[in-house]
Each structure stands twice: as structure tokens, then as C-alpha cells.
């Protein structure tokens, strides 16, 4: 910030404001790396909550991982779960407060590895919650280790010669897996690395929250995201790599809409 010349004070005048941060986000500075998709997804979730006017009825669950401090950024009543357990917390809150909106915000290590069981069973029970799932194919916060979603051949700090499926298993497409369960009502995979995709992701998140009014089961939004720090790339390189590599294993689009599969699995 150019504090020396104080020119920024001129710029932030009301008449110059073309874009305003939603009030459902706090003024705290995001702890995410520059270029990371988390910030965009936070904004989309917060904007959705503001637009639906449900800030006072929404309870969010933060995971363990890069988004562990999500409660610092959402101006909502929030709980921070143990690693992978967010769907269990959300299950209880929603059952005890059926009229509230309950969402979890989880990464791929949290949701697909350590919390795989909680994810599958909350989805199978058809809990009437929204799950926001950020998939960047890596454990970001602990420094870039292999995740269940890490691509074949992908280099991480715990697969330094690339992920060898014979030794380390295959990338887990948990979103396709849970779409098979009758308890899920809306399952979609989105991205936020291009403005057009951001708009689509916003629509998906809105639908996922609106669905809670219908009492029909889990709404699950996967966002394929980047991890430029963990992938050891610049943000621009990371987005390019995401498009060329991640989307082959994790193709974008709706998988299940209104309880019906719309894609062959």
C-alpha cells in the first residue's frame, strides 16, 4: 500500500467504488497465499448467504487444513471441527436445528482422506446440509504432501518421484463416489480459475444453499482449485497446469441434479 503519498485515500472515495466486499466476510486479512482459489470461494459463499438474507440463520463448519481459520473470515457463527469430522458436526447441528442453514467447508485431505467415512455416511444418510469441497490435489497447509486426490505421477513432498499408483493408490474421485448414494440430491464439480467459471460456481453454490429449504438431502459442490505454493508454481502457471492436468481426472460440470444423475459414471 502506498502510504507515503496517501494517494490511496483519494481512490477509496465512495464515488470511485465499483465493487464492494460482501458484509458476510469480515475485514480480517485472508491467510491464503496470493493466487489461491480459497479467497474466491469464500467470497462466493459469503455473497450467496448475503443475497439469500440468511446470515442470522447460517452455521458454518471450518475444517483442518488451509481453511482452518475460515471462522476469521466469515461473519457467521462458526465451529472449527477436528480433521475430517465436519460432516458429523453438521449432521448434529442440522438435526437439532432443522430450520437453520448448515454448511461445511473442507479441503481434499480433510474430506476425502481422514474424513472419508464421515463424508460418505453423512451423504448416505441424506443429511440436509451443504458441503463445499475444495480440491487442489495436495495437502496445502502442512507443506504440500500427497493427498488422496493427487494426480498420477504428480510430485509432492511425500511422493517426490511422482505418485505411483502401484505404491500409493489412485487419485480418489470422491465426488463421483458420493453421487452414487441415494442420500445426495445435488452433486457438481466447478472451478474458479477463470471469471466464467467463477460465475458458474456461484450459481452452483446458490443452488446448494437453496436446496436446504427442500429437505431432500446433501448438496455437494466440489471446486477444483490450485495450490500454487504446494505445486511450486506461479499463480498463472498453476491455473494453466490445473486446466491441462487436473480437469482430465476431475472434469467440470453437474453430476447429479435434483436427485437424478445427469452424467454417466
Amino acid at each position: 500500500m502506498d502510504v507515503k503519498f496517501e494517494s490511496w485515500k483519494e481512490i477509496i472515495k465512495d464515488e470511485n467504488i465499483a465493487f464492494k466486499k460482501t458484509k458476510v466476510l469480515t475485514d480480517n486479512i485472508l491467510s491464503y497465499c496470493p493466487g489461491c482459489g480459497h479467497g474466491v470461494v469464500h467470497r462466493l459463499v459469503a455473497e450467496t448467504i448475503e443475497e439469500m438474507e440468511i446470515q442470522d440463520q447460517t452455521i458454518g463448519i471450518a475444517p483442518v487444513g488451509c481453511a482452518v481459520l475460515a471462522y476469521d473470515f466469515f461473519d457467521l457463527d462458526m465451529q472449527q471441527a477436528a480433521h475430517g469430522r465436519a460432516p458429523a458436526l453438521a449432521t448434529a447441528i442440522k438435526r437439532l436445528y432443522p430450520e437453520k442453514f448448515v454448511f461445511t467447508y473442507q479441503g481434499d485431505g480433510d474430506l476425502a482422506a481422514i474424513g472419508g467415512n464421515e463424508t460418505i455416511h453423512a451423504c448416505n444418510r441424506g443429511e440436509n446440509i451443504t458441503i463445499i469441497f475444495i480440491n487442489n490435489g495436495i495437502y496445502g497447509m502442512t507443506g504440500g504432501q500427497m493427498a488422496p486426490t493427487t494426480l498420477e505421477g504428480m510430485v509432492t513432498s511425500t511422493s517426490p518421484y511422482g505418485r505411483d499408483p502401484k505404491l500409493m493408490g489412485y487419485p480418489l474421485r470422491i465426488t463421483e463416489l458420493i453421487a452414487m448414494l441415494p442420500g445426495t440430491y445435488y452433486v457438481t464439480r466447478q472451478a474458479v480459475y477463470k471469471p466464467a467459471y467463477v460465475r458458474k460456481a456461484k450459481k452452483a453454490i446458490r443452488k446448494a444453499f437453496e436446496n436446504q429449504k427442500l429437505n431432500k438431502g446433501v448438496s455437494f459442490v466440489e471446486i477444483v482449485s490450485n495450490c500454487n505454493s504446494g505445486w511450486k508454481m506461479t499463480p498463472v502457471e498453476a491455473n494453466k497446469w490445473l486446466e491441462e492436468n487436473m480437469l482430465k481426472t476431475f472434469p467440470l460440470g453437474d453430476i447429479k441434479v435434483d436427485g437424478e444423475l445427469v452424467k454417466e459414471l
Binding site: A82, R85, A88, A92, Y97, E118
Partner: peptide, 14 residues
């Protein structure tokens, strides 16, 4: 049991 007790965490915190 892991899920059950984490359900307590969610409900108790509410």
C-alpha cells in the same frame, strides 16, 4: 464412535 462424539461436538457447541 468417532462420528457420534463429533456429533456431540456440533450439537453441544450449538
Amino acid at each position: 464412535e468417532l462420528a457420534a462424539v463429533n456429533m456431540l461436538y456440533g450439537g453441544g457447541a450449538a
